[in-house]
Amino acid sequence: MSTAVAADISPAARRAAAEGLVALGAQMHAEGWSRATSSNYSVRLSADPLRLLVTASGKHKDRLTTDDFVLIDDTGAAIEPGAPKSSAETMLHVVLGRDAGAGAIVHTHSVWGTLLSDAYATTGVLTLSGYEMLKALPGIKTHDTSVELAIFPNTQDIAALSAELSERIKAGDEAVRYGFLIHKHGLYTWASDLDGARACVEALEFLFECEGRKLSLR
């Protein structure tokens, strides 16, 4: 690495996280969920103090290298000299790592996620019910259930969005338990580790396509 690793994070842990995120980026791009330079991902390397490894801004996700990540603290600031700029949505990762206990966070820009976030924008929530794939989400044991995903306005005020997200997580809002959508933008989802977050995004993107195709058949 060209930058010094923070004293409280081992180089091996950082390297492993970066390699996992590089592989994730290649998969998300291949699936069509992270095209152009869209999307951002992170892994939490420490809970106290909070340390997150987040994708740098403006990177094509199919061409990430282990140098294309930024180690940040609980204010969203880079803590290494000479670090590239992190994603503009870094504070959403901070909130999820701090308040939701997320060990890994994945943000995608899929076609179906974008369209459904618009189709259900007036209700402020997308409900997914009765699908077997729901069982891929943490803690769900039966298809006979419903999951709600909040839909937030596509504001450029990330500080305000982060504050609202934090409040809803702390209040135990079920609509931000597994993920949320940003209007005409995309999905955020998370889990305790990167493999879990990958399973969540794969499941939710599958469910989005099911819902979208169902709407088109009506």
Rank of each mutant, 00 (worst) to 15 (best):
H93C: 10
T123I: 09
V125S: 05
N40A: 04
V95I: 07
V94Y: 12
L126D: 09
F152S: 08
I79W: 03
A56G: 03
I151A: 00
V43D: 04
A56H: 08
P138H: 05
L53P: 09
A18N: 05
E19R: 14
T122S: 03
M28C: 10
T55D: 14
V95G: 03
W112C: 15
S38L: 07
V54K: 10
A150W: 09
L134V: 03
S146P: 01
G113P: 08
L53G: 02
A88S: 12
L45N: 02
V54F: 10
V70L: 09
V125R: 08
L149P: 10
T90I: 04
A136P: 13
A13C: 11
A78N: 01
S57N: 11
T65N: 07
A150K: 03
G32I: 00
I79F: 02
L45D: 05
S110E: 14
M91A: 00
K141Q: 10
D73K: 10
T65P: 00
L71M: 09
H107T: 09
V70D: 08
H60D: 11
L52N: 10
T155G: 06
K61D: 12
S110P: 02
A77S: 11
E31I: 03
T122Q: 12
G97K: 11
A83I: 04
G76C: 03
R14F: 09
L126N: 06
S86H: 06
T65Q: 03
A26M: 12
F69L: 09
G124Y: 02
K85H: 13
K59L: 06
I140P: 09
F69T: 01
D68P: 06
A77T: 15
M133K: 14
L45Y: 07
S34F: 10
H29W: 06
T123C: 10
W33D: 15
L128I: 08
A36N: 13
R35K: 13
D68T: 05
L52R: 01
A88C: 10
P49C: 06
M91C: 02
V22A: 02
D118K: 11
N40Y: 09
E31G: 10
T65R: 07
A100Y: 15
F152M: 04
A121L: 08
V54L: 14
S87M: 00
W33T: 13
V125N: 07
P153V: 04
D74I: 10
W33S: 15
L21Y: 08
H107D: 08
G124N: 02
T155N: 02
E148Y: 09
D74N: 06
I72D: 08
W112A: 15
T90W: 02
T127E: 14
L126P: 13
P81V: 06
K59H: 04
A56Y: 03
T145P: 05
G82E: 07
T65H: 12
P81W: 06
A119F: 05
